[in-house]
Nucleic acid binder design. Structure first.
Ligand SMILES: [Mn+2]
Ligand SMILES: [Mn+2]
Ligand SMILES: [Mn+2]
Ligand SMILES: [Mn+2]
Lengths: 225, 225
DNA sequence: TTTAATTTTTAGGTTTGTCTAAAAAAATTA
DNA sequence: TAATTTTTTTAGACAAACCTAAAAATTAAA
């Protein structure tokens, strides 16, 4: 199988993320926004990816990955998350520093490398942001009963299990308030006018979280208080 | 400092290797041969690199690196050799498997990454092929009194200290005969008609080495026998 | 020191991935 | 349903890195 360009790989990865998280058929404009590119460039590339059999694409109707395209996307995500794990676990990077470097490392092409790395890291199941790491065969084990913090009702106790990985500012903010994976926190109050919320961290600090922040923290429900 | 393309980095690296190992001013054709490219392509790129201040280039007279160009080349070589060391020491790659992967990894752009890696590997001085690893400041400590095996007279005992790194076939050949870094061997006889030689390995095996092979093994003289 | 061979450069193209501006289709609103 | 707005595609260009073929400069041979 001939190897794809970095650009093509980034397109497939982004189509995968959008089609699992947001829309079934991925629109030209949503890709343009995520890839910091223009709609016309996206159209060009979608035609090429469709020719090569990586996506199904119908003019004006958006696209989705073929089985082949999806398996490639998953392997790139596997590499991305394994490298992030390496950087945090072995090289002592902070979780907010790894994404940018992993965006480069995910394109290194060597099966032996990535399998050896997986072994070296002891076959980790989740990356530093709580996201599942696909295995060699592309299987992804999603966690059960995870919800966005913003969906949780007041007077609930929850545990942080994942955070949106690609916002540097968010990760720094969480770091600053001692919020990380496995942190427990209590939802004190929700303010409907701006969808912000007030929470109490494990060590008693009360923190206001904006809508944006609360959307990007994923938690597991622990108890009613 | 804005970041160079992978292609530009490869040109600088190759100019560095050729101008230290072979010729003071690097010719268009020698670059074309090393970069598997055509002379006309080299000319184009040299003009660009000269514009950007990485090389001195005079039409028809070849080129050499500026101080800036050299410092960039050395940092790429540093990355290449650190990654090779990582692959062998941590991921259990064979020394013949690492060069191709390092050719990709050397272009990853993150100072923190490479310095952390250096630390993680315990500041190695030499890579798996015996080549010196430049430090953070670009200093390279070359070994004293190293010669090519082909230059050594019969009845000498020598120790292998480095091998040409980028020939897969050579490395596999050496591996097969148990020849590696720190191996001791005895030069038995030299055959002038094809410049081949006969040697005896530490464990007594007698092996014939072609000119090509004997040129690409670097040794330290130990004793006359 | 001419002539011949070799090396290097220029001229003119190609491919990949991008862009802007204009046209076409689809979705919304009236 | 007709008009308007939004989304998407097409048309035409551009920069990077490469190529082939032809011209020019340099080097080697006669
Ligand atoms: Mn990431
Ligand atoms: Mn992640
Ligand atoms: Mn190498
Ligand atoms: Mn090496």
């Amino acid at each position: 199988m001939k190897t794809l360009s970095q650009t093509e790989e980034n397109y497939l990865k982004e189509i995968f993320h959008l089609s699992t998280a947001v829309e079934d058929r991925v629109s030209t404009n949503s890709l343009a926004a995520r890839l910091n590119s223009k709609a016309s460039s996206i159209t060009d590339m979608l035609q090429k990816l469709a020719d090569k059999g990586f996506v199904e694409y119908v003019k004006y109707k958006g696209c989705f990955l073929t089985e082949l395209g999806e398996s490639i996307a998953i392997q790139i995500i596997r590499k991305h998350r394994l490298w992030e794990t390496f950087l945090v676990n072995k090289l002592n990077f902070g979780w907010e520093e790894v994404h940018a470097v992993a965006e480069q490392l995910e394109h290194i092409d060597s099966l032996k490398l990535i399998d050896s790395l997986d072994h070296f890291l002891n076959y980790p199941k989740f990356d530093p942001h709580g996201d599942p790491i696909p295995d060699k065969n592309g299987n992804i084990v999603y966690r059960e009963s995870i919800l966005q913090l913003i969906e949780v009702a007041p007077n609930s106790l929850v545990e942080v299990v994942a955070v949106s990985e690609d916002s540097l500012a968010l990760l720094k903010f969480l770091e600053q308030h001692g919020l990380r994976l496995e942190s427990e926190l209590e939802i004190l109050e929700k303010y409907p006018f701006d969808e912000s919320m007030r929470i109490r961290s494990a060590k008693g600090e009360e923190i206001n979280l904006s809508k944006k922040v609360a959307e990007n923290i994923r938690v597991k429900f622990l108890a009613k208080i």
